[in-house]
Design a protein around this nucleic acid. Structure first.
Lengths: 367, 367
DNA sequence: TTTGACAATGGAAACGTTTCCAGATATACT
DNA sequence: AGTATATCTGGAAACGTTTCCATTGTCAAA
């Protein structure tokens, strides 16, 4: 009971270490650059040059080689390529082990760009912050990727000095990362985003504004820098103070980053005697929970209580949620794009060192 | 303006092709197995044996080697390992380019298992079905992965014969795949799942049951085998017929696989004079859209119209959605687990050839 | 003491590329 | 014709492992 590929693998896979003699192997081996060279009647160097698009090849020769490649169905072996030339055509993405929709959308953006440039994507995940250093060291030492995109978490513990000690020879770019000078990064101004959300609600006539956010409890989340909820909260409060609007701690609740918890929190907020007329949720996912709470209390969303989210994940548009767009997919695209450019040119463009993405309030049905 | 790693990379990275002479390089190179051997005063073969856990090493020697490895911070080069031994410690996952939550949960399961076994995960995505063959061939030829997990789509076009022609030497396992005899696969009985959902609603006293599903429009979706929505619909209809309940085509709507579209469809269904009292949504995401529609019409979810979904994605529990659980995360875990076992033992266990996962109705607040 | 068996070890060859250098060929200029 | 220059090409060496074979050392049995 074996797959067909299995049988082939067991019988011929990784063999061919000995049968060097017979020119025409009865069993088809995976063709190598040598086979191509022989077939085209040229040297291996020439084939390599053709593969890599070197201009130093006569047109006629190139033709012959390309034909031989096509006939044999040759595709260069990645490992050999990497071992010899130091290039893997692979980019790593390292993330906390989370499945937030926002993470997925960013990843999709990265994948999309890499795919168009024939780069592969290796996904690393970090479960515990202590793993981070070891993992980075491993990745660096194995030379399995050409570059690394750090997605949605903060390398707080990795200072300049520590990386120097690690001797990590790997270009790094961070997507969704607080501004720091150690690596290029793509980021948003969460405080400003909080202000924008609050400002929008104020402009809509709201004077009592609540907040549902993410409480930072575990050491991991803390060290990983999941501070966006806090920043957004700060931005909102700043705005409220400036506008001279009331601050009431009973209107602000923090909990786990999921809809269910957000629903509970919203229920609390909406049960106080002097309840707010609008709620700002730190993430869209939390906003969905808030909507559920409003529903549960028999209230109407835009009229009794307005809701604004943050992120603009795909589901937000389906749910007609008013929210702050932060260009999730695009952030991934940019990260990948800059990384590829870095790999091609040898250095990051100064402009790509510190890239802030614009935020936009998207007005839909909930506020 | 360069990252610190950048500078190192440019100056020393991939160099060391020449400085063979001086025993003590001033600039630290990435240590190789030879460095370890020298430091431990043994041969390279011995170091290799230690790394790979061969019993053919004296304890004392092993100690020395391990120490040298630790001191130098040595980590074996993946490319070299692969080129020589044919093993990559990497498993590929190939999927249609989609970001459905169900896909992500399966992927998370895979990632989780691989991570625990020090395997890397390479993510391939297919945008057009025509790519599939080329992509598979590439993956096979590059020998960049030890095995391939085909996730959430059907290799309909790849018959036994075609794969034989491709000479694909790669163990394959499919997760969320219709039963076929060509590869091992993990699957669910979608028809039975549809029956279960319908049966549940009937048991709850419903006699008029609607359906919101996914219309198969594009060639890609068609060829990729996105037939689960149809199967679930068939199961439901079978059950209704058996129970002698009414069939009314106005109650069944099909559209794009997102909340928004599902909302529209549900609005249609609930606007007919003789509307159903319960709706079965082919996916949880669609169920969320149905709930939105109910809300919009000023109806109450469990009382006026009941809703049952399918998949039991994470969000379903937050949303208190009654649904059919299909063990998404677990399906990924199993796929990865079986693949690793295959890689270790050389063949898939007969029991793992054809694995059906149980379905369970999860009763929550919406039906 | 000799022999045989076996465990432990060192090191060469092989994996399939890229890159560099030297050589060959063609072209242009004296 | 002879020389210089530019273009093209072949092939060896190198990348860092694993694996196999040969060699050494050890111990038990004769």
């Amino acid at each position: 009971m074996e797959t067909f590929p299995d049988i082939l693998w067991k019988r011929f896979g990784n063999a061919s270490k000995y049968p060097k003699n017979s020119t025409e192997d009865f069993f088809m081996r995976t063709p190598t650059i040598r086979d191509v060279a022989q077939r085209a009647g040229v040297g291996v160097g020439t084939v390599s040059r053709v593969i890599n698009g070197s201009p130093q090849v006569a047109d006629g020769t190139r033709q012959k080689v390309l034909e031989a490649i096509a006939e044999l169905g040759f595709s260069p072996n990645k490992a050999a390529r990497q071992l010899s030339g130091g290039k893997t055509s692979t980019v790593g993405v390292i993330t906390p082990f989370l499945t937030y929709p926002s993470f997925v959308e960013r990843l999709a953006g990265i994948q999309d760009v890499l795919d168009h440039h024939d780069y592969d994507l290796v996904l690393y995940s970090i479960r515990h912050p202590q793993q981070t250093q070891r993992k980075l060291r491993e990745i660096g030492a194995q030379v399995a990727v050409d570059g690394l995109i750090v997605l949605s978490f903060l390398l707080q513990t990795f200072t300049h000095e520590e990386l120097r000690r690690m001797n990590l020879k790997l270009p790094l770019i961070a997507v969704d990362h607080d501004p720091q000078d150690y690596y290029p990064h793509i980021f948003i101004d969460n405080v400003a985003g909080g202000r924008m959300a609050a400002e929008y609600l104020i402009r809509k006539g709201h004077r009592k504004i609540g907040f549902v956010g993410h409480v930072i409890e575990s050491a991991f989340e803390n060290e990983s820098g999941f501070t966006s909820s806090q920043r957004r909260f700060k931005g909102m409060k700043d705005m409220l103070l400036e506008a001279g609007l009331p601050i009431n701690d009973a209107w602000y609740q923090f909990g786990a980053p999921n809809e269910y918890s957000a629903c509970e929190q919203a229920l609390h907020i909406l049960s106080v005697p002097n309840r707010p007329t609008a709620i700002f949720a730190a993430y869209d996912t939390l906003a969905f929970g808030v909507q559920a709470a409003i529903d549960k209390l028999g209230m109407k969303c835009p009229d009794d209580v307005a809701v604004i989210g943050f992120d603009d994940v795909k589901a937000a548009s389906y749910m007609r949620l008013t929210t702050v767009n932060q260009q999730l997919f695009h952030s991934g695209e940019l990260g990948a794009q800059y990384m590829l450019e870095r790999l091609k040119t040898g250095s990051f463009k100064p402009d790509h060192w510190h890239v802030e993405l614009a935020l936009t309030v998207i007005e839909r049905a909930t506020a």
